[in-house]
C-alpha cells in the first residue's frame, strides 16, 4: 500500500463518524427540529457500544446497543421539545451535558479494556481494482453504511412523498398541520432517526477507530457534525463532501504533527475548530445575496392549535 492510499484510508475512517452523525442531524433539522445534543447522543453510543461489546463479546450487539442508546437519548429530547414544547437549544445542551456525564458513569468499569476492532470487509472483485479498489472497497461496514445513508436520505427527502411531508414539517409546520399531517409524530421519527445515527457514529469511535473507552472520547465531533449540516446547506451530498473535508483536515493535522512541522502541536490541534469557523463564515458570506436556506421552521417549537 502506498502512502497516498494509506492517507486516503485514514481520511475515510476519520470522516465516517462525522458523516453518520451529520446525516442524522440533517434529517432532524429538515423536520424543523434543532437537536444540539448530538455530542451527548454520540458519546452515549460510544460508551454503551463498547460496554455491551465487551460484556457480550459481540461487536454487533455493541452496535445495536449503541443505536438503542442514541435513540433513548433522542427520546428524552423528544419528550422535552415535542411533548412539552421546551426550548430546543436549552434541551439539546442539557442532553449533551447529561450524555457526557452518564457515559462516564456507564464507561467507568470498562476504562482501559482493549478489544479487537471491527474488521474491514473487502467487496469481492471491486477491491482488486488497483488504487481505487483498496480505498473504496476494502472498508469496514460503517463506511458502506454511511455512504448508503447519504444515498438513502437524499432519495427519501426528494423522491418520496414521506420525505416531502417531512420537509414540509420543517418549512411550515402550521400548514402541514392544517393539511392533516401529524407534525409532532413526524418530527419524533426524525429525532429518533437522528439519535440512531449519532449512536452508530459513537459506536464507530469506540469499536473501530480507537477500540476502547476513554471518557469524553468524542472530543467535540458531535459539534463538528452540527457545523457540517450548516456547511452543507442541509443537503446530504454536500454533507458527504463536508464530512470528508473535515476528516481530511483532522488527518492532515495529525500528519503535519508527526512530520515535525515547526508549529506548536496545539495550533495544529486547534485547526479543525478554527477551520469550522472559517468555513461557516465563508458559506454565509457567499450566501448573503441568496438569503438563508435553513428550513424556515427550524428550532421553533410547534404546538398544534385546535
Amino acid at each position: 500500500m502506498t502512502l497516498a492510499e494509506a492517507i486516503f484510508l485514514t481520511v475515510i475512517t476519520a470522516s465516517t463518524p462525522l458523516l453518520l452523525a451529520a446525516i442524522g442531524e440533517l434529517v432532524v433539522e429538515r423536520a424543523g427540529v434543532l437537536n444540539l445534543g448530538v455530542e451527548g447522543m454520540m458519546i452515549m453510543g460510544a460508551a454503551t457500544g463498547v460496554a455491551v461489546a465487551i460484556v457480550t463479546g459481540s461487536s454487533l450487539a455493541g452496535v445495536l446497543a449503541a443505536i438503542a442508546a442514541g435513540m433513548a437519548m433522542a427520546a428524552i429530547f423528544a419528550v422535552l421539545t415535542l411533548g412539552l414544547a421546551a426550548n430546543q437549544v436549552a434541551s439539546g445542551l442539557s442532553l449533551t451535558i447529561f450524555g457526557l456525564g452518564l457515559s462516564g458513569v456507564v464507561g467507568a468499569p470498562f476504562v482501559g479494556i482493549q478489544r479487537e476492532g471491527i474488521g474491514k470487509i473487502p467487496v469481492p472483485f471491486l477491491s482488486e481494482i488497483p488504487v481505487v479498489g483498496p480505498i473504496l472497497f476494502r472498508q469496514d461496514p460503517f463506511v458502506y453504511l454511511a455512504l448508503a445513508l447519504v444515498v438513502g436520505v437524499s432519495w427519501f427527502l426528494w423522491r418520496t412523498r414521506a420525505g416531502l411531508v417531512l420537509r414540509a414539517c420543517g418549512e411550515n409546520p402550521v400548514s402541514a398541520h392544517a393539511l392533516g399531517y401529524p407534525v409532532l409524530r413526524i418530527r419524533l421519527y426524525a429525532v429518533l432517526f437522528g439519535g440512531a445515527c449519532a449512536g452508530i457514529a459513537g459506536s464507530y469511535l469506540s469499536l473501530v477507530l480507537t477500540p476502547f473507552w476513554t471518557s469524553g472520547m468524542t472530543a467535540g465531533r458531535g459539534w463538528i457534525a452540527l457545523a457540517i449540516v450548516v456547511f452543507a446547506s442541509w443537503l446530504p451530498w454536500r454533507a458527504l463532501i463536508g464530512a470528508y473535508l473535515f476528516g481530511g483536515l483532522i488527518i492532515l493535522q495529525l500528519h503535519a504533527q508527526s512530520a515535525g512541522v515547526r508549529v506548536p502541536s496545539q495550533f495544529l490541534a486547534a485547526l479543525p475548530y478554527l477551520i469550522t469557523i472559517v468555513a461557516l463564515t465563508a458559506i454565509m458570506a457567499l450566501r448573503r445575496s441568496g438569503g438563508s436556506v435553513a428550513p424556515q421552521g427550524l428550532g421553533r417549537p410547534f404546538v398544534p392549535d385546535r
Binding site: A86, I97, F98, G101, G104, V105
Partner: peptide
C-alpha cells in the same frame, strides 16, 4: 465516578425545562 455530577446537572436542566412548560 465524578461524572455523576454532570448526570445530575443534566437531569436538573431537563426537569427545569419540563417544569417551565407547565408554567406556559
Amino acid at each position: 465516578p465524578r461524572d455523576m455530577t454532570m448526570v445530575f446537572q443534566g437531569m436538573l436542566l431537563f426537569y427545569v425545562l419540563a417544569c417551565d412548560t407547565l408554567i406556559l
